[in-house]
Design a protein around this nucleic acid. Sequence first.
DNA 1: GTCTATATGCGGATAGAC
DNA 2: GTCTATCCGCATATAGAC
Lengths: 190, 190
Amino acid sequence: MRSEDRRELILAAAAVVFGERGYVGTTTDAVAKAAGISQPYVVRMFGTKAALFQAVLDRSLDKLILEFRQEIAEYDPARGELHACIGRRYVELLADRGLLLSLMQAFMLGADPEIGPTARAGFLRVYRLLRDEGRFSPEEATEFLSGGMMINTLVGLRMGADFDTDPEVREMLTAAMPTKAALLRDLARH
Amino acid sequence: MRSEDRRELILAAAAVVFGERGYVGTTTDAVAKAAGISQPYVVRMFGTKAALFQAVLDRSLDKLILEFRQEIAEYDPARGELHACIGRRYVELLADRGLLLSLMQAFMLGADPEIGPTARAGFLRVYRLLRDEGRFSPEEATEFLSGGMMINTLVGLRMGADFDTDPEVREMLTAAMPTKAALLRDLARH
DNA sequence: GTCTATATGCGGATAGAC
DNA sequence: GTCTATCCGCATATAGAC
């Protein structure tokens, strides 16, 4: 396989594993198994586990920014308010397993001297995009981001696992994501 | 020192370290050093690192619940709306270093077979408290929690570290926490 | 109640073959 | 481009002394 394709394959697998177990909890061997290759090859391709994580973060953030930017460009007021439209995109990104969770795992490691700066810069990029291109006020932007962090947390918790068995979970998820609550159930099936 | 006091000392130190580095990233030796004792003694006292983390979670959640319950009990409409009052308590809990962050770290490990159930149950306890004792609607409760997850994320990111040097950070934090933004700066000084 | 010494297992990284 | 074999360091946990 071409090195470039292999690289993308590993990054996708790594995003899932990093999102699930966090940076430290992820072994390069687990990434290798998820990508169907050998552990040393993962290291060979990215140099170090830390470099792999940074690559995953870059890829996740680029995808997120791309989606948001696209939504802003194509925005049609007939389809509802902008923040609702971007919110819909955000929720759709949950289908790209590991994308939002790997970012969130990085956000929780702000004290790390290498991950911290990257994570802060990434978060700020999103804030700026909403404010400058989306014309959100600072208050609108932080409110939007709050909803995003809530969703990330609920997914991280695998709260959807109890969607069918616990009525309170169903109620809470429905309140948090009126139309897409059931999606969290499906995501938790892994 | 009495075993009971020592236990509390270790739990407080562990909450800080777990909150900073996450469950997997925390070594029992780092906890021991933070508590000023030897590594084997930490293990001796709690059995395993996993048990220590569970104990930290219990302690953190109990404190949080206690504060919220107290605020609800003492609630005086003259001091503003209830969600604003509880929100103020929440922000004050940031002073208890590690308390909210260790919880948040657990929330991101929902896929873990041991941590996951505890984390979900803990989150639900807070939701139920807001709904049943605080008389929040499901929508009000999830909106409140969204703000909480946003604050946790900003603290996890150590976003306050750039409060003085980056005007955009200042703007964002001020929008997210109108009165208490500067508090995040001080928290990031560690 | 608290320590020092240490066994043991695991994970990241390297060497080198094909 | 990809593998097998392996080194080495680190972290949890145990043994046992004081």
